[in-house]
Design a protein around this nucleic acid. Structure first.
Lengths: 355, 355
DNA sequence: CTGTTAGCGCTTTCAG
DNA sequence: CTGAAAGCGCTAACAG
């Protein structure tokens, strides 16, 4: 495992010169050639750890995500990677697995390894502590929001608006009793989406009864359970807005188990998934620009690396409703039976599936 | 950013002593207390880069995968993480994105950063070069196979058998003209699965016509295109074995576009996906023990770190056919035409619900 | 343009 | 059990 001194000796130059050619500083062409030859000869590869120690920073950035099985994050990751590579950074992915402890561990690793920067989707608005990075001036950009949002770069999507629009859509299709299955209370995105939902409910005229809300965990099982609860209500919803696609899968499964299927009970989900249009009927979704969010995040990071003193910036990307068949309207019979104001809409469950 | 000298000064001990308490060496309890107090006081965190330089190894292992959007790899990643953590290693994920160049870059990073080890799912049997790791004695374990397989640890699944069993199953259900959409020729798994398929075809008596095979890229679009080609044949297949679930999604989409759906044309896929049973009819799949493969890989790595001179080991995990509705048999008219005595193969052994 | 030199922060002999 | 001192491999002043 040759080092820079071995190369220097072989090329008959000083170690500094070797370092210079390695880093593209000005060196006479003739020496450059000698050094390069020696490197190839010895199979030399620079030790980045040593360089990192000396320079106090590395060429790799960490992307810390909450759940590697969530397609949103994998798409995001590709966005981050694509622009990071164009800035000559490698990116390593750290899966916090929704566990604040793991997340904290990775944050530690990031500072201890002098990572070039961190893009993080904070697991929790309350528990995530970016202080360890900020203290050490590690560039960081948050996806969605972080407790420190006002002082750091961040990028998010227009979650509230997306949920609002989706809920309006459901209302417009004739659904009367809409529920929302959202994510953890500590998740900014979950809260925003819920807000959009509630705003649409509130605005609806005449106002409906107290909105039906379930908090789950952004995962398949959580969505399944939440939907089971909703369906078991004495007066179940006739449409559900589910705030991510993993939970939507679980919810759909729960519906199937009861022999219910959209659009009899309407379903709108957040996020894109290639299986959205494989299920039948195809799922109406609120498109999240995951890849673009990733790109934007990496761009902010690059920018800050180059110019550490810039004002913190927040970029918000639009969401977009993609109407498919899971929300075309409640079953005809239900609509017909529903008197305009007093009585609640009869449950849209198929006869005999209840108990 | 205090260092070990600052702590030493504050605790009135030598830097060596600080290092010792940090690493759990024998130090008098009283000094341990002083050092710990000083650490907390100053907010000291050891610099892993410096430690890595000195010790010539780090506490993080790299997991290099071919496609982060492939659920197989995300499940695998969780397996690796779970055991790595139990061995006090952090794991960072590197997405090679099926690009040998990116893969090579990450390999470089892994050696240059003195990673504790590498778990890699080689993009290509021909292009992937693990030499750079082996030269430097970086512990490495390959998922599936690598060009250097005979000399390094590896873990894989019983791909050939899985494909064989799946094909037998299809044959047993009365399908007569079965095609296989497999992955790239350079992928060990793709080749194995194809082999299993071909073996089953060959064994089938009387032998069918020349087996229909399409090579794709293990991604949704590739599966889609391959299925389009098959369906456009003058004499299209009546069943298809698709060797991963991303391609199966694409294939299914292509079928939908043509108004065809399983089990009229049978479909069996490799790999689990939560959406497998959301589509209707639910997909018959060959279960791959992705999580367990990940665990096994990490265990091999830990083992080798502890005991570098052990013989290379290969572990093979079983696959399992999960019969669902996408392979219950060709459309009735076809079945009626096929006299039962002619049916070439008894149903494959499986406690399925399908028959 | 080039070489010399002094560290980056930590671990690890080696004495004591 | 503890401290002094010597680097790990590289880069960045600083002279020349």
């Amino acid at each position: 495992m040759p080092n820079i001194y071995d190369v220097a000796k072989a090329a008959e130059v000083s170690p500094a010169t070797v370092s210079r050619v390695l880093n593209g500083a000005r060196v006479s062409p003739e020496r450059v050639a000698r050094v390069l030859a020696a490197c190839a000869d010895l199979g030399f590869r620079p030790n980045r750890v040593a360089r990192g120690l000396r320079r106090r920073s590395s060429e790799v950035l960490a992307l810390i995500i909450a759940d590697i099985e969530n397609p949103f994050f994998t798409a995001l990751a590709r966005g981050v990677e694509d622009v990071a590579r164009s800035g000559n950074l490698s990116v390593v992915l750290c899966n916090a697995d929704d566990d604040p402890q793991k997340e904290a561990d990775y944050l530690e690793v990031a500072v201890a390894e002098h990572m070039a920067g961190v893009v993080i989707s904070p697991a929790s608005l309350t528990e995530t502590d970016l202080g360890v990075l900020l203290d050490r001036d590690v560039p960081v950009v948050a996806i969605d929001r972080s407790p420190e949002s006002s002082t750091i770069d961040s990028v998010g999507a227009a979650e509230e608006e997306g949920a609002y629009e989706a809920t309006r859509h459901l209302l417009g299709q004739g659904y009367r009793r809409i529920a929302c299955i959202t994510g953890p209370r500590v998740s900014w995105a979950a809260v925003e989406r819920l807000r959009g939902f509630l705003r649409a409910c509130r605005e609806n005229d005449p106002p409906r009864r107290r909105p039906l809300v379930r908090y789950a965990d952004f995962r398949v099982r959580g969505g399944h359970q939440a939907m089971v609860e909703l369906l078991d209500l004495r007066d179940p919803p006739d449409a559900v807005l589910v705030t991510n696609n993993l939970m939507a899968a679980g919810a759909l499964e729960a519906m199937h188990e009861r022999g219910i299927s959209p659009p009899d009970v309407g379903l709108v989900s957040f996020g894109d998934a290639f299986w959205s249009h494989l299920v039948q009927p195809a799922l109406t979704t609120v498109h999240q620009p995951a890849y673009e969010v990733g790109r934007a995040a990496a761009e902010l990071l690059l920018r800050r690396r180059a110019e550490p003193t810039l004002e913190p910036q927040r970029v918000v990307l639009p969401t977009r409703l993609e109407v498919r068949e899971s929300s075309t309207g409640p079953r005809p019979v239900a609509v017909r039976h529903a008197p305009s104001s007093r009585r609640p809409v009869p449950p849209a469950r198929s006869a005999g599936t209840g108990s």
